[in-house]
Computed example of a mutant assay.
Amino acid sequence: MKLILTQEVTGLGAPGDVVVVKDGYGRNFLLPRSLATPWTKGGQKQVDAIRKARSTREVASVEQAQTLKARLEQGAVTLTAHAGAGGRLFGAITTADVAEAVSSSGGPELDRRKIELGQPIKAVGRHDVSVRLHPEVSAKLTLEVVAG
């Protein structure tokens, strides 16, 4: 099945990429979640529009991504969440919460879709979060979750 990606899919591609995947993966995962659209002959115009939008949103160069990486890896970002006994959170920390915490602590504006949590954050403490700044550059962000 030939599809046009509309969102970043880890291990598959970026928005605007044309990919060939197995029918079940495309029909049951990518299409229902609006991560891709079917390829058509007129799809090239759509691919060009997606790539243009991505280029304006994306970090322009590797050097800029490296400086952003150095800024993110300087120190830990503190996030306050409601927690119960034993340090378990009521709910989980989402990528949107992480992006908001980074911007409120004086860091750069991050797209929540570029933040990757290895596993759901459901407890207080220190957690490592990966941020894809550029296709060649990713940063490790230290997140300190405290009970509040």
Rank of each mutant, 00 (worst) to 15 (best):
L35V: 00
A92T: 12
D128H: 11
D128L: 13
P32M: 11
A96E: 10
R132A: 12
E8I: 10
K52H: 09
A53Y: 01
G43I: 14
K2L: 00
K69Y: 02
V131W: 07
E8G: 10
V137G: 14
P38H: 11
V102W: 13
L141N: 06
E58R: 15
L35G: 06
S34P: 00
L72V: 12
V124L: 10
I121R: 13
S138W: 06
G42C: 01
K2G: 05
G43P: 14
S55W: 00
K52N: 06
E116T: 07
L5I: 11
L35I: 07
N28D: 04
V62Q: 06
E144C: 09
G86E: 12
V131P: 08
G148I: 05
G84S: 03
A36D: 05
H127I: 00
A139E: 04
V131E: 01
V47H: 14
S61I: 01
I50N: 03
K45W: 04
G75R: 09
L79Y: 00
I115W: 00
A49Q: 09
M1R: 13
G11M: 03
E136T: 15
A101N: 00
A123N: 12
E63N: 15
T6R: 11
T142W: 02
R112C: 01
L30C: 08
G118M: 05
G43Q: 13
Q119T: 11
L31C: 03
T95G: 01
K45Q: 12
L68H: 10
V137M: 13
L110Y: 06
R132F: 00
R57T: 11
